[in-house]
């Protein structure tokens, strides 16, 4: 590893820990107002949707609503399976296989 890489990895590790640790470290000292606590349960669906929706609809940077967009088709198909079965492992395996096959077909 060269010096540049050591600086890079150290810097990335430092900022990431500085984001992850303080919210947990200060937990016992800071009390959040109740409306904020009530809203926290929407963080997982909101963050996930904010990652997933653009990844499906704009895989190459521009809006792509066409059957040739395997991210969109396989994403919708996996979503339907997850809705019906609630089985995460089955959804992941099905989705990846479906995606790879669909990409071949188009």
């Amino acid at each position: 590893m060269i010096w540049n890489e050591i600086i890079l990895v150290t810097g990335m590790a430092a900022v990431t820990l500085l984001i992850r640790w303080p919210p947990l470290a200060l937990a016992s000292r800071v009390a959040l107002p109740q409306p904020v606590v009530d809203a926290l349960k929407f963080i997982p669906p909101a963050v996930l949707a904010a990652i997933v929706v653009p990844a499906m609809l704009t895989p190459n940077g521009t809006l792509d609503v066409h059957p040739s967009n395997a991210y969109l088709v396989a994403g919708v198909a996996s979503g339907l399976l997850a809705w019906r079965t609630r089985n995460l492992l089955a959804t992941i395996l099905f989705g990846m296989i479906f995606f790879l096959i669909w990409r071949r077909l188009w």
Binding site: L48, A49, V52, M56, S78, G79, T91, I92
Partner: peptide, 14 residues
């Protein structure tokens, strides 16, 4: 796509 489908599987039932 593996990461995307993981997140889809987590979000959809909710």
């Amino acid at each position: 796509f593996a990461l995307i489908v993981t997140f889809i599987g987590m979000i959809t039932p909710g």
